[in-house]
């Protein structure tokens, strides 16, 4: 591995004197966008790269080198949509990856893998959770319901039917998470009015922007779900 080196780099900001551009408003950029530089030539501090920029990157996991590589597989029985699955799992497997990669239950979606979008929402003992941040091995004894478990045969769950009717989606990718979340939202009693629905559905991002239609769908479905609200 090469060693660190010190480098003083020629000023990349240097511009010819009396450049007419100097007098107009420039510039946005990733870094200076907010301060429109009137004088670009004034920013001529030499850029020195410190050792951390240089190199040597044990960045990506130096300490992991000493870590135990091996994986102790864990036997678990999980109850998903009423069916019991006997599984031998790498404990690192998230519930989401278990569903999608091992059980072909691809209805639960991966939109961020970090609990930031809600596309992976499933019902765990009736409560909505992010399956991407849940380790599958920790769920023995729990009841897991995914989007595939909501309909009764060909009969859509009222929430599913309402999403179709109100066009509560476009691309459909956040939709299973939205629907699982919406079902829980109504059951929790957090769907009393538009403002409450909006707030309590904010853990499910929809980049297509179907939010107003999602609110309409939930309002319709809440009356058909037989939940006292």
């Amino acid at each position: 591995m090469s060693d660190e080196f010190e480098a003083t780099v020629p000023d990349p900001h240097a511009s010819p004197p009396n450049d007419p551009l100097d007098d107009i408003l420039i510039f946005g950029s990733v870094e200076t966008r907010r301060r429109f530089l009137k004088k670009v030539a004034g920013t001529s501090a030499a850029l020195t790269l410190g050792p951390h920029l240089m190199g040597l990157s044990d960045l990506q996991g130096a300490s992991a080198i000493t870590t135990n590589h091996s994986t102790t597989m864990v036997d678990v029985q999980l109850k998903i949509n009423g069916a019991v699955h006997k599984l031998r799992l790498d404990p690192r497997t998230s519930l989401l990856d278990l569903l999608r990669e091992h059980l072909q239950l691809t209805g639960s979606k991966k939109g961020c893998d970090h609990g930031q979008c809600g596309a992976c929402t499933v019902l765990l003992n009736g409560r909505r959770v992010n399956s991407c941040l849940t380790l599958a091995v920790a769920l023995e004894g729990d009841e897991i319901t995914t989007i595939e478990g909501l309909a009764q045969g060909d009969q859509l769950h009222p929430m599913q039917a309402a999403f179709v009717e109100h066009d509560g989606f476009q691309c459909g990718y956040c939709t299973p998470g939205q629907i699982c979340s919406a079902v829980a939202c109504v059951q929790e009693g957090h769907a009393k009015d538009d403002a409450q629905i909006r707030e309590w559905m904010s853990g499910n991002l929809c980049r297509c922007g179907a939010y107003p239609n999602i609110v309409d769908a939930i309002k319709e479905a809440r009356g058909k779900m037989g939940v006292a609200s």
Binding site: S29, L49, G55
Partner: peptide
């Protein structure tokens, strides 16, 4: 390992 060079990171 890299041999880094000075990048251009903003329009200015």
């Amino acid at each position: 390992n890299y041999a880094p060079e000075a990048p251009l990171l903003d329009m200015a």
